[in-house]
Design a protein around this nucleic acid. Sequence first.
DNA 1: AAACCATGATACC
DNA 2: TGGTATCCCTGGTT
Length: 557
Amino acid sequence: MAPQTRGLSFPKVVIERDSDSEESSSEEEDLEEEEEAEVENDAGEESDEGHVEEKDEPSTSTKSRREPITISLKKVCKVCKKPGHEAGFRGATYIDCPMKPCFLCKMPGHTTMTCPHRVATEYGVAPAPFKSTHSSMEYVFERQLRCRISAIKPTFVIPNQVNCAVIRYHSRRVTCLEFHPTRNNILISGDKKGQLGVWDYLKVHERTVYGNIHGCILNNMKFSPLNDGTVYGASSDGTVSSTDLETGMSLTLVNLNPDGWQGPNSWRMLYGLDMNFDKGILLAADNFGLFYMVDTRSDNIIGKPILIHKKGTKVTGLHCHPLQPDLLLSCGNDHFARIWDMRRLEAGASIYDLPHKRVVNSAYFSPQTGSKILTTSQDNRLRVWDSIFGNLDSPSREIVHSHDFNRHLTAFRAEWDPKDASESLVVVGRYISENYNGVALHPIDFIDVSTGQLVAQVMDPNITTISPVNKLHPRDDVLASGSSRSIFIWRPQENFELKRPRDESRIVLCGKGEKYRKGKFQDDSDDDLDNDAYGSKSSKTKKPNLKSKARGFKQKR
DNA sequence: AAACCATGATACC
DNA sequence: TGGTATCCCTGGTT
């Protein structure tokens, strides 16, 4: 395995960040120097010592003077619009704007690069070794060391290697994943278009996508506890569906927009979905703060909708307690997670309100005893309440973790490991990237929420996109992750090294792969063809390979 | 290679 | 309170 360049890139970066003048930075990297020289040449040709303001000239005058619209020649930070520094990728390392609060922990005074939370997940949760230090170098060093150590606790088995995948499986980004409750190798997936995928990841090539179930985002899915061939879905088209996985036949149980599109103020979207198996009713919640109970036999909404979150705000999730059928957990855009008693479900009657600083993407009871609560909030913090029977006034722990909101990404949701008897292992995708061998990768983090420690961070050189959707298998040591339109299955691998050659027959390439196939491999028939998109050694066709795909990576030539 | 686009929460007035 | 400008690590296509 090639020596890691992490060690090289970070110190360099730190030096550059602190420099105000561009000259000093250019001593460091020839690459940068070249780029900047070019820019300045262009500037000369245009013979306009551009002021930023110039670009606002009306287009007519610009035309008459035959001058191209002046680009601000003074380099300006794209974040704060001030000169003297620039935010953005330098190679595979992202440089924050120093004028803004830390992108990770949202506190002012430092950048992501030197954020103590980036060094140690448990910073601020439990004493961390470098807690009182203020030297960025020390943080950086600590980080490098940390990555070398395989931080896998013996008790936790971490699926750390991609075992199989379907690349560009869905036609839009993946929004949710569920493992089949009884058939071990079946994974179902929902996407932004409302389509539902069924994939047998053991027989890698066996997969289907059902397209006619929903009109837009499939936000949550839930298997029927009575019939595991049936799955329910809640969608932003305002419907709850019931789909037979074998046939793809789908029924609409509920439609909250029977009159069609009447404008955004009336269009109702369903997000949260769960099933109360005790009563045999489906629970769903919408973007106006309302909660619905659906009788799956009569397909009727039971009673009137109940306002469970601030009027007009989205309820992002619902979760029934695994043992106490009367307990319900909800979360929403009003910055609250709420615990409810199903027997007394009415507006304002929540048992507890758990406040957050931002939108709450998800809230889950712990999977086995249901005594803990885990929430993911857009303030970049995971919160854990250790006992719902104890003091709920404040969370037992807040763990700073990068899972920011981005309108183009599926919202991150930290998920419990359903197999972990200690109910402490959690998986969650990471937004900010790490520079790995000059490639920006977004790992999937395994966090021990009892300590806040990062147990493992898994990544693959070929997955350069963010993986906001993750699910751990209820029985097997398997992780499923959804990243953009693709789905990956991870399994544990000892002595795992990134870049290890892998079994390419277990990678299915869909969609645009066809193009490559026609051009380069005049191969046949159907898209089950194994491509080398994933491979390390293979031909020049490959876009998705490290270098070409790496963000901001400039190939030296 | 660069431009463009899709489009949700939020800050701010 | 409501309308609206704004937006930093996106991902894909033209």
